[in-house]
Design a protein around this nucleic acid. Structure first.
Lengths: 177, 177
DNA sequence: AAATTGCGTCAATAGTACTGACATATTCCC
DNA sequence: GGGAATATGTCAGTACTATTGACGCAATTT
């Protein structure tokens, strides 16, 4: 089946373009943007012996204090076993604590400690700086359109995960500005 | 030094907000958007026994036909040894060919084959569809502002890597001659 | 009482990355 | 010409993140 003839190995010397209406420009920009976006916290995490997995857990536990292990697995889309090691390390280092669920005592509600909150903020700070700078650089007054675009990039079924977050929903939920 | 007292493990029950001016909304949206953005090609790659690493190599070899191994390593920011396995598989399956450099015969110029070109397109198609849909959904007529934002998110020193690409400006570049 | 659920853990495996070391061919430079 | 530097390939060892499968325990549900 596989064509091993020399012809099949002829090199194509022209660059792929936006033929077929494929948006390579944004595809590639998205790759580079995300690569650099995650590189900031990666540097900090290395000091703790943590990886990106720890960051994600820390982030969501801070964003939705009291979420259960099952809920966390659902958001991260990883397996229980993958989470286990990472979560254990974060608990052992007092970044996260588990509390028995009030209604269902089988559940473990996850909360950040002061230390976990501090680390989450430290990790988010350079990312936020980068975003702010990008919004200014690009002259994008329209922060809202960036937000809408990113949200529209998420699978519709999964958009629920986003809206769980407090801030966003009622446009201006008290608390900050 | 580590405070192991009970006080240090007190749970924080309030969600982290945009306190300190941290832009959690976009941080999180970026995470979800990229997660789903990469999930499309991941599905296709699985059929070939390939992973995300193969996708990246394939993409850049198609984008910049004739780039050398060293240049590819620089763009991907991985080590030679990491690239080796992936590249070997792509060559063995006739997705990519190596040609001896014309000026410097130590160099190996990398080119896609017809098959490699086809796979790159197949992988990009769903991503491009998602982008197109997101631009329409979000009513963002201003595709340019999304592009500017993403570009501004990239480390300035590394923006050169982006601009190497032909397409963008004179829609009809010939790659080489 | 029995079945189910939420969580934790053990064992085995895989994919992707890393560092270090070394071989080969080629080119550069004195 | 000959040595140094360069471009690539490869071998060995390690680490991290992820996977699946299986099992145990406690609590809840039926």
């Amino acid at each position: 089946m596989t064509d091993r003839s020399p012809a099949a190995r002829k090199p194509i010397r022209t660059a792929i373009t936006d033929e077929d209406g494929i948006d390579f420009a944004i595809i590639e920009l998205f790759f580079f943007a995300y690569r650099d976006f995650t590189s900031d916290p990666d540097q900090i995490l290395a000091d703790y012996g943590f990886g990106r997995a720890h960051h994600r857990v820390l982030h969501f536990v801070n964003r939705r204090p009291g979420l259960t292990v099952a809920e966390l697995l659902d958001v991260l889309k990883i397996t229980k076993q993958s989470l286990a090691r990472v979560l254990k390390q974060l608990i052992d280092t007092d970044h996260i604590v588990q509390l028995q669920g009030p209604r269902d005592r089988r559940q473990r509600e996850l909360y950040p400690t002061a230390r976990g909150r501090a680390l989450a903020l430290a990790l988010a700070r350079p990312q936020s700086r980068r975003i702010r700078a990008a919004l200014e650089d690009s002259g994008t007054n329209e922060r809202a359109s960036i937000e809408r675009f990113l949200e529209a990039m998420v699978n519709p079924e999964l958009r629920a995960q986003i809206d769980i977050v407090p801030a966003k929903i009622s446009g201006k939920s008290h608390g900050d500005h």
